[in-house]
Write a protein that binds this DNA or RNA. Structure first.
Length: 208
DNA sequence: TAGGCCATCTGGTCCT
DNA sequence: AGGACCAGATGGCCTA
């Protein structure tokens, strides 16, 4: 993984194109089953059920499970862990407390699924060997490759500007542009958050 | 079998 | 108060 941290330019492309070969020592070459097989990708957000209980034990442990054992499991956990210990929690009735916990769990699950969707979106635009026979990029690999890809694009843009300045020495346009700082979205005419207005967007008023 | 990756649960903290 | 975010813990699946 360390290899990914310092990749740039050609090295990045080489790795990206031959990612499946694990040429950089990454153990990512083998085919992997669909995500659904691992229980991810089929969440039941409405019913507050786990995406797909991994095993009976895990299911029993999971607070989303609607089996007869779930109350026992929950009670055991509740006894084991004292909880936040707030006065409000202490006053809360067990059933009410449990219902709150389930809703918090569901929210957290949804949040993580959103995060994974975003990561999938990122994988879709990173140039690497997209293929059913190639294992999906891990989260950390996705982030690191994305970072290096951005840096590489910025570098390419910089070189392009230099070339333009060289070819058009008399143009006043080149100087300020060439001097412009290379920030990922600094020159972008399109809001990076367009299409999905987000609270993260600080550059426009397309707040949700 | 160890290690990597992942999903989920959970409690804590911060923000609105 | 409720929601978002975060990090730790736990356990399952997969591969070398």
């Amino acid at each position: 993984m360390a290899e990914l941290r310092s990749l740039s330019g050609d090295a990045y492309l080489a790795l990206s194109q031959g990612y499946a070969a694990a040429a950089a020592g990454l153990a990512l070459g083998a085919a992997r089953g669909p995500e659904a097989a691992r229980g991810y990708g089929a969440p039941d957000l409405e019913g507050d059920l786990p995406a797909a209980p991994r095993t009976a034990a895990a299911a029993a442990e999971s607070s989303g499970e609607q089996s007869g054992d779930e109350d026992d499991a929950f009670e055991q956990r509740r006894r084991r862990r004292p909880g936040p210990g707030g006065a409000a929690d202490a006053r809360r009735r067990p059933r009410e407390q449990r219902s709150l916990r389930l809703s918090i769990n569901a929210r957290e699950r949804r949040r993580m699924h959103d995060l994974n969707d975003a990561l999938d979106g990122l994988r879709a635009v990173i140039p690497y060997a997209h293929s059913p026979s190639v294992r999906k990029l891990s989260k950390i690999a996705t982030l690191l490759l994305a970072k290096n890809y951005i840096l590489m694009q910025a570098q390419a843009l910089d070189e392009m500007r230099r070339l333009l300045a060289y070819l058009n020495p008399g143009q006043g346009l080149a100087a300020p542009v060439a001097a412009a700082p290379l920030t990922p979205f600094g020159q972008a005419a399109v809001c990076p958050f367009s299409g999905a207005p987000s609270a993260l967007c600080e550059r426009c008023d397309k707040k949700p």
